[in-house]
Design a protein around this nucleic acid. Sequence first.
DNA 1: TTGTATGCGTTATCAA
DNA 2: TTGATAACGCATACAA
Lengths: 336, 336
Amino acid sequence: MRNINIKELAKVLNLSTSTVSRAFRDNSDISKETKDKILAAAKELNYQPNHYASNLREQRSKTIAVIVPELANNFFSQAINGIERIAREKGYHILIYATDDDYEKEVSFIRHLHNGRADGIIMSVSGEANDHNYLNELNQKRLPLVFFDRVYEDIKTPRVITNDYDSSFSATQHLIKQGCTRIAYLVINKNLSIGKTRMQGYIDALQKYDIPYDDHLVVDCTNSYRKNNIILKDMFGRLKPDGVFTSVERLAFATYYACYDLDISIPAQVKVVGFSSLEIAPLLNPSLTTVTQPATKIGVEAASLLFRMLEDPQSVNISQEIVLDSKLVKRNSTAL
Amino acid sequence: MRNINIKELAKVLNLSTSTVSRAFRDNSDISKETKDKILAAAKELNYQPNHYASNLREQRSKTIAVIVPELANNFFSQAINGIERIAREKGYHILIYATDDDYEKEVSFIRHLHNGRADGIIMSVSGEANDHNYLNELNQKRLPLVFFDRVYEDIKTPRVITNDYDSSFSATQHLIKQGCTRIAYLVINKNLSIGKTRMQGYIDALQKYDIPYDDHLVVDCTNSYRKNNIILKDMFGRLKPDGVFTSVERLAFATYYACYDLDISIPAQVKVVGFSSLEIAPLLNPSLTTVTQPATKIGVEAASLLFRMLEDPQSVNISQEIVLDSKLVKRNSTAL
DNA sequence: TTGTATGCGTTATCAA
DNA sequence: TTGATAACGCATACAA
């Protein structure tokens, strides 16, 4: 059985295709009677208006694209969860793209989306160090873009972020108050805007408590478990920090693994705090003190913002920035 | 600036639209020279063939739909990760739908996909207790469907699953060998095929070691943290199990929380093992013994299977079943 | 190798 | 309220 189309359905009902089409639009002039008859027949024959024909005709796809650095990640899967919920309420579908933190892939995805495939884009970026000009083409195509969490500072587009500076400041301050004086700051990419902001909070907190900032204590890590383990063990051996602040969740885990391997006791010898959306942070050994971002809410806000742009472009300022609060949740990894 | 279309590009180049169109198809007769010229101009003007027009014309979308019970879940996000990788290699896009374990949503998503929006569907199901006949319509539409992990036994379609029975048997056996005799089995929905299979492994292992099966030790839980906490605390109070086997990851966490609350020591008083894809199981307190499913691989296999069906429908048997091995990883939660 | 003409399935405009 | 028809942007059969 092939897919039935509007012509065939019209023929069955002895109606014109226009009338049938009208039955599926809410605002059209059509008698209740015929509409019901058409919808009943459509259900019976399992007819659905072809999505691609509608899109072509209407010049919009009721689809949004979501681009994230990675999928197997608590933060992003929770954010996507939030986006999905809003999109579903609006009757939109979502396309998912993972860049694996690869700038080339990001560019390629965005370029592919220039073909009308999506009505809007929600993205958490990957290539801070690179040229972002390719994003300006979106503006020209009137393809709305919303950043969340990881953003490009030099691209003017609405964004949803968290108060990273304040959170980092609080987290660092917390470590200091718990007696730490040699606090390592672990980061994946110092140059990512998010890395820079979080780092500034760390630096300023140190300064407030007259702790000299030491470049060596800022450790550049990777996305590889194996490499991080090597980097961190080396770091612990050389620098003997008494506190570790990790700018992303994965590095908190890496810190735990390294400490396990080296028989360094958390929190007795080293106190650890990290940005993390892990719901089971209380179950870790020891329970992990976290800066918890409202990941789902970030997704919800980003999607809502995009839909506002879609529904009324005028209503959203291009420089709109929604800042949500993260929470510092103190647990045993920073206990005295 | 509006989107440029094939006509305008053709005009700019003083060529016909057909020639321009050919430049984007690999197999067409076109001189290298003109092709290069066209592609260069396309890049310059940022032309991309409109996706919906192509789809309408070609009657396929180069898009696959992925339907899962939930997104904020280690297993599913890893599986999606695997699917995404394969899809990207094949030049396909993926649409994501989360059912929140709601049968109605599942039906609604599938029905919406009847309109040509996707060329195939990969799904982990939600509504075991309900009528699955609506899926048979897909066959009639030649819309290929692949199940993974959670499947409907009564629907004939290719599937990728793990050896749940064996894993459950091994896990239960492991608990028994560690001295447990009152082993609780925690499940979200006894009626889901995956619940049944896993439960059978548990039952048979008990039997092998002459441990009487006690209905009360099979505990029906929910997806709510709060409710599970109440259910499990009550369960520990009444049944005093010395072992807990959880059929899904979330229930292992719930068990930990309940034990923390009740001051029950794991593994001294209760040993715990659970199905889980958590990569940081070693970092839990105590480290969690897991049945680890190859989540990413499951996604990769499911996607590969779907693409085989897409490329050559004859090549895949409708009853094809790929069974991957899970691993029982013994850690401290079941130590002596 | 390139151009012309048609149709993919739908919706909007216009006329009846 | 309904019907005829054109157009959305593209890819192919066929002609040149």
